[in-house]
Amino acid sequence: MDTPSAPYAPVAVTAELDGRLSRWLWLVKWILVIPHWFVLIFLWIAFFVVTVIAFFAILFTERFPRGLFDFNLGVLRWSWRVSYYSYGALGTDRYPPFSLGPEPDYPARLDIAYPERLSRSLVLVKWWLLAIPQYLVIAFFTSGMHAGWWSSGLITLLTLIAGFAVAFTEKYPRDLFALIVGLNRWVLRVAAYASLMTDAYPPFRLDQGGTEPHSGTVR
Rank of each mutant, 00 (worst) to 15 (best):
F168K: 08
R94H: 12
G101Y: 01
P35M: 06
W127D: 04
L129N: 03
A54P: 05
L100D: 01
I112F: 00
W150R: 05
E170D: 15
I155C: 02
R63I: 14
F42I: 07
G67D: 09
Y114M: 13
A108F: 02
V125T: 13
V218W: 09
G101Q: 08
S99E: 13
T142L: 02
P7E: 06
L158W: 07
L27T: 13
D2G: 11
I138C: 01
T92M: 02
I58M: 13
F168D: 09
R81G: 00
P10E: 10
P133S: 09
F64S: 09
G91S: 03
R174E: 12
S151K: 13
Q134I: 10
W78E: 05
Y87S: 03
V52T: 09
T211F: 07
R20Q: 13
V50M: 11
M145V: 06
L188T: 04
P97R: 10
G101W: 02
F56I: 13
Y8H: 09
P4K: 01
W24V: 15
L100C: 08
R117T: 14
L136I: 12
Y135R: 08
S121L: 15
Y8C: 01
W30N: 02
Y135F: 15
T14V: 10
W24Y: 15
F64W: 11
W26H: 08
A89H: 01
A200I: 13
P10C: 10
T3Y: 02
W80V: 05
G91C: 00
T61P: 04
Y201D: 03
Y172I: 05
S86W: 12
G19P: 03
I58E: 05
L122I: 09
W26I: 03
R174K: 14
A200E: 14
Y84T: 04
V13P: 00
K126L: 06
A113L: 07
T51Y: 07
W186Y: 15
